[in-house]
């Protein structure tokens, strides 16, 4: 019976390498044209910008490249970007795990609403995200005046940059974990509980290993966006050179000063970060499909 079923599903026609029977495939010429058109589009819009960054970065030679990266302002920007990510990513990691746990592991009224709320920052324009924190902590706001009276700076300083970045990158970890947790179910966790594990033991020994690849990818995405965020940070930063300019803002300043090679040199670091992010994604997909 299974054998007959198998034969019924697989027609006797020779199956081409795409795994589909021949009469359902396009003629070779059409296929080549479709592949060509898709590759041309992707080449123009993805490969060309990627190559351009590195070509322009090294256009004036290695010396200029190295000088652009060792410039004190560039170093300050790199430091600020790293510090911001070092604060934002762990905080959003904890939030992401908690949010995913509360949404994916339980059933209750309002669960869908909560999921929408978690995703909300994604649908807010980066500039508006930054504006929110200016309204909250700026010189016109009550809270801002109180902070100014106590000599605390939020806007045009590190706290503002951290807050805006945290807002923009809040959904990344939860968004990766929720579908994963839903698909995996809770059978192993329940088994651990019946065998006498405590809640934390269950979480550390069972849940964390189960979600580790999704968690890794979520963290990498969150980090990429935290280091690369431009619009939101641009609003709250004030562009004080060497103090509140992150790497993307430093790129903007150099570009507007027509220091193209230097701008692309700093941009090449951010591009490398993006490439690493894509590689991690590929590895995670490969691991989870195994």
């Amino acid at each position: 019976m299974p054998d007959r079923l198998l034969r019924f599903r697989r027609p006797a026609v020779t199956v081409p390498e795409s795994g589909r029977s021949r009469h359902l495939d396009e003629p070779p010429l059409v296929r080549a044209a479709l592949i060509g058109a898709a590759l041309l589009f992707l080449g123009l819009f993805l490969v060309l910008p990627l190559v351009t960054v590195f070509v322009e970065a090294f256009a004036k030679g290695l010396g200029t490249y190295a000088a652009a990266l060792s410039d004190p302002m560039a170093r300050a920007a790199i430091r600020l970007t790293l510090v911001t990510a070092a604060i934002v990513v762990p905080v959003n990691l904890v939030f992401g795990v908690a949010a995913a746990w509360s949404v994916a592991k339980f059933d209750y009224r309002g669960r869908h609403l909560l999921t929408t709320l978690i995703d909300l920052p994604f649908s807010v324009s980066p500039v508006v995200s930054g504006l929110l924190f200016v309204l909250l902590f700026g010189a016109n706001a009550a809270l801002g005046r109180w902070l100014a009276d106590h000599d605390l700076k939020v806007i045009f300083a590190l706290p503002g940059i951290v807050l805006a970045t945290a807002f923009v990158t809040a959904p990344f970890v939860a968004r990766e974990l929720i579908p994963l947790m839903r698909a995996q179910g809770s059978d192993e966790e329940l088994a651990a509980l019946t065998l006498g594990a405590s809640g934390w033991q269950m979480f550390r020994r069972i849940s964390l290993p189960k979600m580790k690849w999704g968690l890794l990818f979520g963290v990498v995405l969150c980090n990429a966006r935290a280091m690369g965020e431009f619009g939101a940070v641009s609003v709250v930063s004030g562009h004080i050179r060497g103090e509140t300019t992150t790497m993307p803002l430093h790129v903007e300043i150099l570009y507007n000063e027509y220091q193209l090679a230097a701008a692309f040199a700093v941009a090449s670091l951010l591009t490398l970060l993006a490439v690493v992010t894509l590689v991690v994604k590929a590895v995670v997909e490969w691991r989870t499909h195994e």
Binding site: L46, P49, L50, V53, P126, L221, A224, M227, G228, E229, F230, G231, M247, P248, L249, V251, E252, A267, L270, T271, L273, A274, V275, T277, L278
Partner: peptide, 8 residues
């Protein structure tokens, strides 16, 4: 485009 900073 998801991974590359928009300014770049």
């Amino acid at each position: 485009p998801f991974a590359l900073p928009t300014a770049v």
